[in-house]
Design a protein around this nucleic acid. Structure first.
Length: 795
RNA sequence: GGGAGCUUAGCUCAGUUGGUAGAGCACCUGCCUUACAAGCAGAUGGUCAUAGGUUCGAGUCCUAUAGUUCCCACCA
């Protein structure tokens, strides 16, 4: 072995080796039980960040653990490179707007940009030592995946779980598309509460209303007051005049109105917000469209037509003020639902859209959620709460360009929906022909292609179907998958929609277990955001500077499901550990050149270190079986430092001096060192795959026979030992510790030889270790005495 | 407004079923000891957020309170 470990040389070398030799490949012909992981396809929306490394490493540890404990691990790697996130990336990077370009041209640019990013993502994940099987790579824009996504739609259509309807949908005026409830993000925005009078001619008095959206005045359909509000009793049933526009609207009552809010009288516009929507349906109010797809005022707004919402609002407030109609305007901060991708406040527009029925099966989704094992368990609450709060069906059509096409045509004559035939998939209705030549409903023969594409989640919600080969024999055998891994922010989207799809398609769970990871925070309060562009947190610079192993070590120090603070200290500990593993291995192996493995009669202290190893591994496995990667590593680490600081110290005199202690004693130490180091390295290989491979390839390969440490199996060390050997050895460490304390307190060198030591109150078996205590404690003579309390007396 | 997590040493956090408070880092002391000074040994340091309760016994279980973070709702 070399003197110093150089990760800069070692890490790329082994990464290449693993890829070339397909060390992590899934074996479809293996007899071993399958452990399948539904690994999240990262959204191709920009550069990979440290949060990716953190959460992907955590689930990757599980893949390695399962691989090394008897499973045939199915660990694919996908990339979510279609849809709005990718479009936004392309628009930003190229400085273009999708709707200003011909569709084909824009799609081609998206494909080019996405493939560049996919390659880059893959490169960085490999740099981080990720052990996914990249031969199982999928991309959500590929034709294979499009086929499954469209098949999912056809299946839902056949089963009546998806429908086409013209109804109010959540709309993003920036992205010019409908979006789903799950894509909304609540944001506190500053706004103004504007008070104005609606005049009632019949009563010759005015009703005062307050609104944050005065630009919607033109779409006002009525004014609501609370039925028991004494102030406005007279107005109920009367008509009032809308300021600036002059048309009249009725005053109605509804108990949703909050008497305390604003003036207690509220104008209802179609649609200013979701309450308006509720009222419109309940009171069957007329619909007036004030805002268009791109967020500009329509003709309805009169002189404000063509203005952006914000501009129109400013101008109308101005006009109200000038005409003396504005009573007052107060600033306030209120929660506004915005599109999570761009931060634009949502609007409600009536459009024809495709919806997946969620509302009639909420109970089933809850039941499914109960059958899944969530790690950590409390994270399931987020799922249940979300499902309980879902109040609209899932709108899956997007008026965008770069995505999976909705495989549908409409009869130009009667509007009949014609869906593609499964044999046509993947299908692009703009190019392809419908499966019928005449409309089955009216017999007409002209059709209009659907130009919308699917919501990206419509595709990513079928990753289990993609992974398990939906439609092939494999599917039945592989579903449900063993494990889904993701961070907590997409429980309500990815996890939820995946459960919905598996319920509708196969009435089975998509996976048995879900492992949730946290986020990386820069400090106690701050997320590491892309906008801050903090270079020191970039995965590449961390890996280049600190090594992939150390970066992985830091990922492992996180607790399951919890956010982690970026900590220099943990990187330091990781670097120390890697260094120590190297030095300890180098030292131990220097005594084991040309070693021939044979199990000798083991000395008690050698039995002790092996027995402790088995004990540690048991708890290590128990933690990993619960996905507690950090606690498992801590167990291993603790054992390792004990091995170095106590066991090696005791064993090394035998290794150095076979002529004094005899061949049997030396063989016993050699065997224990050999076997413990080998098995420890395998366990460390889960977390620190590079350095462990380096040592394995240099030394242990010839004993194990596998071409990589990552193809070996973690195992217990066979041992026939006396009872209580762990307690016995621990007692020895305790005594040695007392001697060390004495020397430290008396400023003595640790090699100072203590002339006489009296050990009181320890069990008889301690005498067995007489030689070990003498050697490591540097004691010349030991006497044993009985006693009630344990004591170590130095004379 | 509803829900969840967290609150333990100066810092970052462990603490499985209740049984004498733990680790790492930092700080301090000592040690060149024939793998490693990027090392080793040791010391200091905590009313386990607060208040009640259950119990022979509570960091752990129950109830309330406070602080904090997150999720959801609140958009007139």
């Amino acid at each position: 072995m070399l003197d110093k470990y150089n990760f800069k040389e070692s890490e790329p070398k082994w990464q290449e080796y693993w890829q070339e030799n397909k060390v992590y490949a899934f074996d479809p012909n293996s007899e071993k039980p399958i452990f399948s992981i539904d690994n999240p396809p990262p959204t191709v929306s920009g550069h990979i960040h440290i949060g990716h490394i953190f959460s992907y490493s955590q689930s990757e540890f599980i893949a390695r653990y399962k691989r090394m404990t008897g499973y045939n691990v199915f660990y694919p790697f996908g990339f979510d490179n279609n849809g709005l996130p990718t479009e936004r990336l392309v628009e930003k990077e190229r400085g273009i707007r999708a709707h200003t370009l011909p569709r084909e041209e824009f799609t081609q640019i998206c494909l080019d940009v996405a493939s560049k990013y996919v390659d880059d993502y893959k490169r960085v994940f490999i740099m981080a030592g990720n052990s996914a099987d990249f031969d199982l790579k999928y991309s959500t824009i590929s034709s294979e995946v499009q086929k499954i996504s469209q098949k999912s739609f056809l299946d839902l259509y056949k089963k009546g779980n998806v429908y086409y309807a013209q109804k109010p949908a959540i709309w993003c005026t920036e992205c010019r598309t409908s979006i789903a409830q799950a894509e909304l993000e609540s944001k506190d925005l500053e706004s103004t509460f504007n008070y104005m009078n609606f005049e009632c001619k019949a009563l010759n008095k005015s009703i005062e209303i307050a609104t944050t959206r005065p630009e919607m005045l033109c779409a006002c359909v009525c004014v609501f007051v609370h039925p028991e509000d004494e102030r406005y009793k007279d107005f109920v049933g009367q008509k009032v005049e809308v300021p600036l526009y002059g048309f009249e609207v009725p005053v109605l009552t509804d108990d949703v109105v909050d008497k305390e809010k604003g003036t207690g009288a509220v104008m209802c516009c179609t649609f200013g917000d979701e309450t308006d929507l509720l009222w419109q349906e309940k009171h069957n109010l007329p619909i007036k469209v004030a805002i268009d797809d791109g967020g500009r005022m329509t003709e309805l707004a009169g002189k404000y037509a063509g203005l952006k919402i914000k501009q129109a609002r400013e101008q109308i407030i101005n006009d109200l003020q000038e005409s003396g109609k504005l009573i007052k305007s107060e600033t306030l901060v209120h929660a506004v639902s915005t599109h999570e991708r761009c931060g634009t406040p949502m609007e409600i527009l009536i459009k024809k859209q495709w919806f997946v029925d969620l509302l009639s099966h909420k109970d089933d989704f809850i039941e499914m959620g109960k059958k899944v094992h969530w790690y950590p368990d409390y994270m399931k609450n987020r799922y249940f709460e979300w499902v309980a709060n879902v109040d609209r069906d899932w709108c899956i059509s997007r008026q965008r360009y770069f995505g999976v096409p909705i495989p549908v045509w409409y009869c130009k004559h009667c509007g009949q929906v014609i869906v593609a035939d499964e044999s046509q998939l993947p299908c692009n209705p703009i190019v392809d022909k419908p499966p019928v030549s005449t409309c089955p409903h009216c017999g007409a023969s002209e059709f209009e292609a659907e130009t919308d594409v699917f919501d990206t989640w419509h595709t990513s919600s079928v990753t289990p179907q993609i992974n398990c080969g939906w439609g092939t024999d494999r599917y039945g055998k592989m579903m449900p998958m063993s494990l889904r891994t993701n961070a907590h922010e997409i429980i309500r989207t990815w996890d939820f929609y995946t459960i919905v799809k598996s319920f509708y398609h196969s009435n089975c769970l998509p996976w048995e277990n879900v492992m949730i990871s946290g986020f990386v925070l820069a400090d106690k309060d701050n997320k590491i955001s892309k906008s801050k562009n903090n270079a020191k947190f970039s995965p590449e610079s961390l890996i280049n500077e600190k090594s992939a192993d150390v970066t992985r070590y830091w990922s492992a120090t996180g607790s399951l499901g919890k956010d982690i603070i970026f900590s220099e200290g943990e990187f330091k500990n990781g670097a120390k550990l890697v260094n120590k593993i190297w030095n300890a291995s180098k030292f131990v192996l220097s005594f084991l050149q040309d070693y021939v493995v044979k199990q000798p009669t083991l000395l008690p202290i050698d039995q002790w270190i092996i027995a402790k190893f088995n004990q540690m591994q048991k708890s290590f496995r128990a933690y990993l079986d619960k996905y507690e990667i950090g606690l498992a590593m801590a167990e291993l680490e603790k054992y390792f430092w004990n091995f170095c600081d106590n066991y090696i110290e005791i064993a090394k005199r035998r290794l150095y001096n076979p002529q004094i202690f005899g061949q049997d004693a030396t063989d016993s130490a050699k065997y224990a060192c050999f076997v413990v180091l080998k098995e420890m390295l395998k366990m460390f290989a889960i977390y620190l795959p590079h350095i462990c491979e380096e040592i394995y390839k240099d030394y242990f390969e010839k004993y194990e026979g596998e071409i990589s440490i990552h193809k070996t199996q973690i195992s217990y060390i066979p041992l026939e030992s006396v009872e209580d050997i762990v307690e016995q050895g621990d007692a020895v460490v305790e005594i040695v510790s007392s001697i060390r304390r004495y020397k430290s307190e008396n400023n003595l060198s640790l090699k100072y030889e203590i002339p006489k030591l009296i050990i009181k109150g320890y069990p008889e078996y301690v005498r067995t270790f007489d030689g070990d205590i003498k050697a490591v404690g540097c004691v010349l003579d030991i006497q044993y005495q009985n006693g009630d309390e344990r004591a170590v007396i130095i004379e």
